[in-house]
């Protein structure tokens, strides 16, 4: 593994809000093109960490580089190299499918001509040609999520952050969504994903599990199951999370 190219490096990262330590000395690396699962119970500090990695929030101490850019000083470069899709719905509901694609592609600096080509490609791939002129609010949730993911990587970012991307969608759509993730990873996009679905954790190349602001475990799903003598990721998670509760 170690000979692979790292794209995210986090060392001794700390984030405090007053007395509360949301991220306590995080250390990890993410390799180019891998699907990195970022797990943790609610309130474990996942969202705080993602915000720092996306350049939305400054760490209290420690270092992190994203695609070679420093989180303290090169926020704009980071923002140009990443895509982001949040648990909250992030498309404009009162704009059509095409208008959403055009807007997000446009603000990432794509030319009008490229946007047109890309829009056609996206619509064809998602089989949304007939709905191109529909408003987002008139689309079913599953379609919106798939479109939101496609738009998050419309500008071909090096890394895409997915913050609980599949919340509230049915299993079939989740499966399709993960196919999209695999496709993106195959094209070389690094995927950094948080989720509460443990079956999804099994799809990841490597998984980290956060407990109380610390990374309690980090390995391949296979490795984790062996270490914790568990049948499934679900069991691994519960074993680790129980430690947190007992504390």
């Amino acid at each position: 593994m170690s000979e692979r190219e790292t794209i995210i490096t986090v060392s001794h990262l700390v984030k405090k809000f007053g007395d509360f330590t949301a991220n306590d000395d995080l250390n990890f690396e993410v390799y180019k093109g891998e699907i990195f699962g970022f797990l943790g119970a609610n309130g474990a500090g996942k969202t705080t960490a993602i915000k720092i990695l996306c350049g939305l929030s400054k760490p209290t101490s420690g270092n992190a580089t994203i695609a070679g850019f420093d989180v303290y000083t090169q926020k704009d470069d980071i923002k140009n190299s990443i895509g982001y899709m949040s648990q909250k719905f992030s498309l404009y509901e009162d704009l059509t499918v095409t208008e959403n694609i055009r807007f997000f592609a446009g603000i990432y600096g794509m030319t009008r001509k490229d946007i047109k080509i890309k829009t056609q490609q996206l619509l064809a791939k998602l089989e949304l040609e007939d709905s191109a002129k529909k408003l987002i609010k008139d689309l079913p949730l599953g379609w919106r999520q798939k479109l939101a993911f496609s738009i998050a990587i419309v500008h071909s970012p090096k890394i895409v952050f997915l913050d609980e991307p599949t919340g509230g969608v049915d299993p079939i759509t989740r499966r399709q969504f993960w196919n999209q993730i695999y496709e993106a990873a195959a094209e070389g996009v690094t995927v950094f994903v948080t989720t509460h679905y443990m079956d999804e954790a099994e799809y990841c190349d490597r998984v980290s599990i956060m407990v109380d602001g610390k990374i309690a475990a980090l390995d391949t799903p296979q490795g984790l199951k062996q270490t914790f003598e568990a049948e499934s990721m679900n069991e691994v998670f519960i074993k680790l999370a129980r430690v947190a509760v007992n504390n």
Partner: peptide
Amino acid sequence: EQINVTPI
């Protein structure tokens, strides 16, 4: 949130 992660 989405706008904030873009380079706008």
